[in-house]
């Protein structure tokens, strides 16, 4: 009797698994299709694209579009890669350093005004960037920082309330006993920060680092506002510039090759660090 029921359940389960697989598969295809289309068209013969060929599975593949991207304005793409990388790496390292310092102080060091200052920090979490964007532009213009990378790096390094908030929530969970033990050894605060806290919050640091790296790599508006020299161009600006070429119209093959090249590094980073992403986002939801 019991056995029979179990068997029936399994049958139903199989059906539901098949149904669910179909639905989820469709969703996955919907998510992946633009990537497929991007890569396919980056490899398609540009003449075919011009003729309006939209067949989903043509495989007259050439490297022409990639060659066109690499030769675009004498290899501007490499320059853009380098610039994007410089901005992303410096701002990521900087923000990790300063926000972990502050997070440690807020979590473990008892100093006057700690609580109200932290409260103020958190209160500004919700302020949209658009509000501070205009005065910041003025500040950076007066500092003669426009048309340099500084406006794209410094604000992220010097203030990252989300980073402080996130790292603090990790540091708080470190037992005080660990730090007190170090106290006995005569450890300075810096040593405690460097030797005890940093290794313990490594996963959180990686997560935050990934977010800030990707945020910086993908950001567009600030680049649009501050950078005007061609030698300072970044990947998003390069791609937007490819679209703007009025004389020739949008050369879609070349565009798709450029977008593929811009998406690939991020996708690789992401695939190799998926665990940290998921962790980071999941904890945000729990807070």
């Amino acid at each position: 009797m019991k056995r029979l029921k179990l068997k029936r359940m399994t049958k139903r389960q199989i059906v539901s698994v098949i149904l669910i697989t179909i639905v989820v598969m469709i969703a996955a295809i919907f998510c992946l299709f633009p990537f497929y289309w991007m890569i396919l068209n980056s490899l398609k013969d540009p003449d075919l694209i011009n003729q309006g060929d939209t067949s989903l599975f043509t495989f007259h593949l050439t490297w022409d579009s990639y060659k066109a991207v690499f030769s675009y304005k004498n290899g501007l793409l490499w320059r853009a890669y380098l610039n994007s990388l410089i901005i992303a790496v410096t701002s990521t390292i900087g923000t990790l350093f300063t926000s972990s310092l502050a997070a440690f102080a807020f979590a473990k060091i008892r100093f006057k005004g700690s609580k109200p200052i932290y409260g103020l920090f958190i209160a500004t979490l919700m302020i949209p960037g658009q509000v501070t964007m205009l005065p910041l532009f003025m500040i950076f213009a007066k500092l003669h920082w426009t048309n340099t990378f500084l406006p794209l790096i410094i604000p992220g390094v010097m203030i990252n309330t989300y980073g402080v908030f996130m790292l603090r929530s990790f540091i708080v969970t470190i037992p005080d006993g660990l730090l007190e033990a170090a106290d006995v050894d005569g450890c300075s605060w810096f040593r405690k920060y460097f030797r005890i806290v940093l290794p313990l919050i490594k996963p959180a640091l990686i997560t935050l680092g990934l977010f800030s790296f990707i945020g910086s790599w993908n950001s567009y508006m600030t680049h649009l506002i501050y950078l005007s020299d061609e030698s300072l161009t970044t990947i998003p600006l390069l791609i937007a510039g490819l679209k703007e070429q009025a004389m020739t119209g949008v050369v879609w093959g070349r565009m798709m090759a450029a977008t593929t090249l811009s998406v690939v590094p991020i996708a690789l980073i992401y695939l190799s660090c998926k665990k940290y992403f998921v962790q980071g986002i999941a904890t945000t939801g729990m807070k």
């Binding site: 300063t98 008892r110 100093f111 200052i117 509000v131 003025m138 500040i139 604000p155 203030i159």
Partner: peptide, 27 residues
């Protein structure tokens, strides 16, 4: 501890005043 604490939050605090508080009031 007070001094150390402020030293630790100094970069973020400067950034907070320069890039959040001041711009907020200015805007």
């Amino acid at each position: 501890e007070n001094i150390i604490g402020y030293l630790f939050i100094m970069p973020q605090l400067i950034g907070f005043v320069a890039f959040v508080v001041f711009p907020l009031f200015f805007s």
